[in-house]
Amino acid sequence: MNREWIEVKVITKSEAIEPITGIFYSLDVKGVAIEDPNDITERPSGPFTWDYADYNIFEYGNEAAIVKAYFSNEDNLEEIIRFIDTKLAELRDMGIDIGMGKILSNKVLEQDWANAWKKYYKTTKIGNNIIIKPRWEEYTPKQNEIVVELDPGMAFGTGTHETTMMCIEFLEKYIKEEDRVFDIGTGSGILAIVAAKLGASEVIGVDLDEVAVDAAKINVQYNKTKNVKIIHGNLVDVVEGRADVVVANIIADVVIYLSSFIGNYINDNGLFISSGIIKDKKQEVEEALKQNGFKIKDVNEKGEWVAIVAQK
């Protein structure tokens, strides 16, 4: 059934994508899509398609990024927009450059927002040997390449965003065979699947978003990574025991919050890989990690983003 949904979008800048995505996920959102000019590997020719209708550079400028969220027709649109507007003001007060910060809404059909963007999502190599391949593309792997086949659906995590890239690079650098891994906010399941294909013995991905959980489970099944388990819920409620590596590609404020207790879920000398951190928050995140008993082991930056590896 081609169901109708309410689409709410925020016209912003790349550095504000993660916190704005966090705003949407604090609501009863049914899916989130991101259009980031820094991630586009192939631009459409000719007239703009539906997926790029908002990327008219004459209207928004060539640095505009868009975060779209999809809500049920029964949701209170006015209340949703008021909440988003308040939260955007808070981001401005925190010094985050949200660009236009313009909120728009309209109604869309499910088949449009679920599928139209796929032709612009291309095979990408990350790190030394990791290949992220859309399921609908053909690719012949070269020697030693590890291929992850992905259909993110409406879940965050195609591999093309700097935050995801840095997490993948750190997983490739630090994962050892037989490691147990927790992926917090697993999204499409991309990091969980990468960890498993790098040799981790057990990987648990958790997410509060049911849309993401469904997408991740499908991707896990498609990649035949039988040692990956995807769970709906909060880490502290649904996961038992400790991991050798915990990875969280979320936002800086959530990383700071996690730092206060995540050590309870990490083995001695284990690693906490975090990303989704804008540069302005780097020092604050590092200080929080140190205050909670972690040592900063590695740091990487791409664009406006930072990823940190902390050791317990």
Rank of each mutant, 00 (worst) to 15 (best):
208 L>S: 02
146 I>P: 02
172 E>P: 07
154 M>A: 11
181 V>E: 07
172 E>Y: 04
181 V>R: 12
149 E>S: 15
169 E>R: 15
216 A>Q: 03
169 E>Q: 15
147 V>I: 14
177 E>Q: 14
208 L>I: 08
142 K>W: 00
162 E>Y: 13
147 V>Q: 06
148 V>H: 08
144 N>A: 08
180 R>K: 15
186 T>P: 07
190 I>F: 09
171 L>R: 10
165 M>N: 13
198 L>C: 10
189 G>S: 09
176 K>V: 00
185 G>W: 13
160 T>K: 09
147 V>G: 04
210 E>N: 05
179 D>Y: 15
140 T>F: 09
201 S>G: 15
184 I>R: 02
199 G>F: 12
164 T>M: 03
167 C>A: 15
149 E>K: 15
190 I>R: 06
144 N>Y: 14
191 L>P: 06
139 Y>F: 15
163 T>L: 06
223 N>G: 08
206 V>H: 10
134 P>V: 01
211 V>Q: 14
214 D>S: 01
194 V>G: 07
191 L>G: 05
213 V>A: 08
221 Q>I: 00
171 L>M: 12
207 D>E: 00
165 M>I: 14
135 R>V: 14
166 M>N: 10
190 I>E: 02
135 R>W: 09
170 F>W: 08
222 Y>H: 09
177 E>M: 11
155 A>Q: 12
171 L>Q: 07
174 Y>S: 09
188 S>V: 06
184 I>D: 02
219 N>W: 09
194 V>F: 04
169 E>D: 11
181 V>A: 09
214 D>Q: 04
183 D>M: 08
186 T>Y: 10
169 E>N: 13
193 I>V: 15
220 V>F: 06
191 L>N: 10
204 I>Y: 01
212 A>N: 01
159 G>R: 08
177 E>W: 08
178 E>T: 09
222 Y>S: 07
172 E>I: 02
139 Y>I: 03
191 L>M: 14
161 H>G: 13
137 E>Q: 14
141 P>N: 06
173 K>C: 06
140 T>Q: 07
209 D>N: 15
190 I>D: 06
153 G>Q: 12
159 G>H: 12
191 L>K: 11
197 K>M: 01
220 V>S: 08
186 T>V: 10
183 D>K: 11
211 V>D: 14
155 A>D: 07
213 V>F: 11
152 P>E: 05
175 I>K: 12
162 E>P: 15
158 T>M: 05
147 V>P: 11
154 M>T: 14
134 P>F: 02
155 A>F: 11
161 H>Y: 12
205 G>P: 05
166 M>F: 13
136 W>M: 08
218 I>M: 02
216 A>L: 01
158 T>V: 01
205 G>D: 00
172 E>D: 06
215 A>Y: 01
173 K>M: 08
167 C>P: 07
198 L>A: 10
148 V>T: 05
213 V>H: 06
187 G>C: 07
197 K>Y: 04
